[in-house]
């Protein structure tokens, strides 16, 4: 009996010890897991001195833009070239180059060489005479005599490369800049070519109003097209993002303690970037001089050998 009791108590004792140890180790494991996130401590004085600033994570609207280059071209049908239907002699030219004409206005008077009758050349559209190749007394047959351009509205043809084309959609808004950043205009993508040219370029088209006459066909422009717009739940400043040992992190503040919180990022636009996972709205994070915190965490490895 005694032997059994002592054996039993031994077994019980062993079991108790094992369970105690395991809970201990579990607890320890939990603790160590919680401690697994790298962190550092900084005093308020140090923060002020090093200009480390914080902000609260908020929801926000992000717009993703792509920059494309393009050329201003006249709208289809806004540039017409007129020539004589018959072999004729020019009797009168009533317009000068650069003159504004209305639709139906007479441009020139010609005499049919064969029949001898006179006929007029009328401007089919309102616009500006941009080219006058006709002079009185000339014999013309098929040459282009006048070009009339209506540049009240123009098209901007943007060169979209394969990566761009995937992101573009009809209806997206864009801001256009001329080369010298003097003027800006807004427009909407109205057409994306289904074909690619030999150089893997698809044309995307934006229509622009051009009352001022600033957007001359032939002009090179650059366009920032807003390809995506999202209401993000959490956005942070781009300056807050750092990489720590292959992970993207944001430094979250808890009193004077700063924890390197791994985050997953979404789209970024300008100074802001969306955080899809890892950060809650309202958390205080470091946005100014966040590099200093990364430096502080890794500084154990800072060395200099020769």
């Amino acid at each position: 009996m005694i032997k059994l009791t002592s054996k039993a108590s031994l077994i019980v004792g062993l079991l108790v010890t094992i369970s105690a140890l395991s809970t201990n180790s579990l607890a320890a494991a939990d603790d160590s897991h919680a401690e697994a996130l790298a962190h550092t401590e900084l005093s308020q004085a140090a923060m002020t001195r090093m200009q480390i600033s914080t902000a609260k994570a908020t929801a926000g609207q992000l717009a993703l833009t792509r920059q494309l280059y393009g050329v201003v071209v006249p709208r289809q049908g806004d540039l017409v070239a007129l020539s004589s239907p018959y072999r004729a002699r020019i009797i009168k030219v009533t317009v000068q180059q650069g003159q504004h004409v209305d639709a139906g206005q007479q441009l020139a008077l010609l005499e049919n060489l064969v029949s001898g009758s006179r006929f007029q050349l009328l401007a089919p559209i309102a616009g500006e005479v941009v080219s006058r190749q006709a002079n009185v007394g000339e014999i013309v047959e098929q040459a282009v005599l006048f070009e009339v351009l209506n540049s009240q509205r123009v098209w901007v043809e943007l060169s979209a490369f394969p990566a761009d084309v995937e992101a573009l959609e009809v209806g997206q808004t864009a801001t256009l800049n001329d080369l010298h950043q003097h003027r800006q205009a807004n427009g909407t993508v109205s057409y994306i070519s289904p074909q690619m040219s030999a150089g893997h370029i698809a044309k995307a088209r934006i229509e622009l109003a051009n009352e001022s006459g600033h957007w001359r066909p032939g002009m090179h422009v650059s366009a920032n097209v807003r390809v995506a717009q999202r209401d993000a739940e959490v956005v942070v400043k781009r300056a807050a993002i750092q990489t720590l040992e292959q992970q993207t992190v944001v430094f979250v503040r808890q009193d004077q303690r700063f924890i390197a919180q791994p985050v997953t990022l979404g789209i970024q636009s300008g100074d802001w970037v969306e955080v899809t996972d890892g950060l809650a709205v309202g958390s205080e994070y470091v946005d100014g001089n966040s590099y200093l915190l990364k430096a502080d965490l890794l500084k154990q490895g800072a060395s200099h050998s020769h």
Binding site: T40, L42, L293, A295, S303
Partner: peptide, 13 residues
Amino acid sequence: ELRSKVQDLPGNQ
């Protein structure tokens, strides 16, 4: 003394 003062600055070893 110097050491304890400069330890306060983050990021330096």
